[in-house]
Design a protein around this nucleic acid. Structure first.
Length: 569
RNA sequence: CGGGGCGUGGCGCAGCCUGGAUAGCGUACCUGACUGGGGGUCAGGUGGUCGGAGGUUCAAAUCCUCUCGCCCCGACCA
């Protein structure tokens, strides 16, 4: 393709609203333009990249037996009501009405539609398993879209769904998909980690995320520096606590005045004790009502782990208004002693011999409080957030590290959540009706491209990994109006094109400096610079974007060498 | 949804506090000449009615009210 004919609106400066580097560079490189919050138009340069990512995904999904489909983006409300998600999904689900006032939604995900198809068409275990996928636009009305294509409302996603006669088959496909995903992200040139994840509102009991490590990531990833345990921070387990060897005799519970001291820090300073001597009582609102969670003063509650311990649909920290209304104690002085709520304590707290807690009245705390003696723990569990450098729960010597990550893929074994809601059954080999076991698997296409930029850029612009670069090579004539230069450039360009190499010919009349700047901004992996002097000595210059390294290769005998260089990239 | 910020040619910004004549600068774009290995030089040009509506005033980009949009932090989230 000739640069002069292409629509590549590059910018010298980033728009003020672009915060993260991938967003800035995508706009500057003429890949995308914003239409509304979280909604982007994809321009030719951007689409070339997305298509390459998609094709890698297709190849790897096909390799494990996936079959591509294309499902409707607009879906009738009835189906969502039947699965129970019309109400459960909340405001993130974009709802609309047609001219007959019938309710529809724009699909944020497609479990409901695909399960509806399969329940109608699959009758026998002989037809299972089935793995179907699609690459399509999703819409999720995110409260706060941000970071360009990293978290858009409308976005391109590969979503796959599998149906099985049993759990074992589902786990096999789950593993196959995990392998496919590793291949996809490796081929996209990404450094990633597969981590254990919470399955969240999608449901199910086995789930991993594929995280690209980058500072701009919205998730935190915890991983062991010794074994291969890695997990999303919201899922990360703490090691079993060891009981304290406290020899001091048990004291009676005492009330102490702590006027105006609300925070852990204030109370501990006031009483001259370390923060781990105190226990925080955090109230959570859940679909099963208000509960109390207890963690040590120096710890944080992990709401996801708490939610799983409670086995509830949702759990969120109660706001002050709710606490005042239900408990009547100001925040900061709530404690477990005499509290008329179910109390869930972190295992650490359950093992403590003595602690300081709020006294359930303003300006007072209790000291020498003992679990069991002074209050009852409904259920102890692992409900705290882990911290960097604390011991790994899975091996003897490992320590936790924590890094930021971008979630580019997520896989789930769903079990029968959707098949039971939508009654998707089949006859097993005994002739008995069974629920299908399902799995689902997603890759964010645009997010993968954005993540690739986050990991591969420098101060000049994008440094595309070769497999997803919009063009592999750019031919840059120093002056296209010089006959010898033009002829050589055209010839090189045509030869590359004939060999199936994505080449771009920068035939613009601009000076070479302009061409360098754009080629670097757009991130084309290889530049071939055609100048009169080198041409006279039978050579052209080849420059590698990533390293800046440049070398001369013979002309007109260039193609073997170019191919070698491309192979090495 | 809470907090903060911003809307002025395509992009980046100044002007607003303290109202005043043709709304300014850089860049981009167009024309011509020169130049031709790192966003080149010179000259001449095109393009905005200041997010929108209403108000105050002799006079509004500037002051007031309402409204829309965008961004950031938080809450939220496959």
């Amino acid at each position: 393709m000739r640069y002069s004919k292409l629509f590549i609106p590059t910018l010298k400066e980033s728009p003020a609203e672009a915060e993260v580097i991938s967003h800035q560079l995508m706009v500057r490189a003429g890949m995308i333009r914003q239409l509304a919050a979280g909604i982007y138009s994809i321009l030719p340069m951007g689409l070339r990249v997305l298509r390459k990512v998609e094709n890698i995904i297709r190849e790897e999904m096909n390799r494990i037996g996936g079959q591509e489909v294309f499902l409707p983006s607009i879906q009738p409300a009835e189906l969502w009501k039947e699965s129970g998600r019309w109400d459960f999904y909340g405001k993130e689900l974009l709802r609309l009405k047609d001219r007959h006032d019938r309710e529809f939604c724009y699909g944020p995900t497609h479990e409901d539609v695909i399960t509806d198809i399969l329940r109608k068409e699959i009758k026998s275990y002989r037809q299972l398993p089935v793995l179907l996928y699609q690459i399509q636009t999703k819409f999720r009305d995110e409260v706060r879209p941000r970071f360009g294509m990293m978290r858009g409302r409308e976005f391109m996603m590969k979503d796959a769904y599998s149906f099985h006669a049993g759990e074992e088959s589902a786990r096999e496909t789950y593993q196959d998909t995990a392998t496919a995903y590793s291949n996809i992200f490796r081929r996209c040139g990404l450094e990633f980690k597969k981590v254990e994840a919470d399955s969240g509102t999608i449901g199910g009991n086995l789930s991993h995320e594929f995280m690209v490590l980058a500072n701009s990531g919205e998730d935190a990833v915890a991983f062991c520096d010794s074994c291969d345990y890695a997990s999303n921070l919201e899922k990360s387990e703490a090691r079993d606590p060891v009981p304290e060897n406290d020899e001091t005799a048990a004291q009676d519970l005492k009330e102490v005045a702590t006027p105006g001291k609300k925070s852990v820090e204030e109370v501990c300073q006031f009483l001259s004790v370390p923060s781990k001597a105190l226990v925080k009582t955090i109230l959570f609102d859940t679909d099963q009502g208000l509960v109390a969670a207890l963690v040590r003063g120096d710890r944080q509650v992990n709401a996801v782990k708490l939610k799983n311990l409670l086995d509830v649909e949702w759990a969120q920290p109660a706001d002050e208004k709710l606490i005042a209304q239900k408990v009547g104690v100001p925040v900061g002085y709530v404690g477990p002693v005499g509290l008329k709520l179910k109390i869930y304590a972190d295992r650490e707290v359950a093992l403590m011999k003595s602690m300081i807690v709020g006294a359930n009245k303003p300006d007072a705390h209790f000291t020498d409080v003992q679990p069991g003696r002074d209050f009852k723990i409904e259920k102890p569990g692992d409900v705290r957030l882990i911290e960097e450098n604390e011991p790994c729960p899975r091996c003897a010597d490992g320590k936790y590290g924590v890094k930021r990550g971008i979630e580019v893929g997520h896989i789930f074994v769903l079990g029968t959540k959707y098949s039971s809601a939508l009654n998707a059954t089949f006859l097993n080999d005994q002739g008995k009706e069974n629920l299908m076991v399902m799995g689902c698997y997603g890759v964010g296409v645009g997010r993968t491209a954005a993540a690739a930029i986050e990991q591969n850029h420098d101060d000049k612009g994008i440094v595309w990994p070769l497999p997803i670069a919009p063009f592999q090579v750019v031919v840059m004539p120093v002056n296209y109006s010089t006959d010898s230069v033009r002829e050589a450039s055209d010839h090189i360009y045509k030869t590359l094109w004939d060999q199936g190499i994505d080449a771009l010919l920068d035939d613009r009349s601009d000076r070479l400096g302009v061409k360098f700047k754009d080629a670097e901004l757009i991130g084309i992996p290889l530049q071939i610079i055609v100048g009169p002097k080198n041409l006279d000595s039978g050579q052209v210059e080849v420059k590698i974007r990533k390293t800046g390294e440049s070398r001369l290769v013979p002309y007109p005998d260039f193609s073997g060498e170019i191919r070698n260089i491309l192979n090495d990239l």
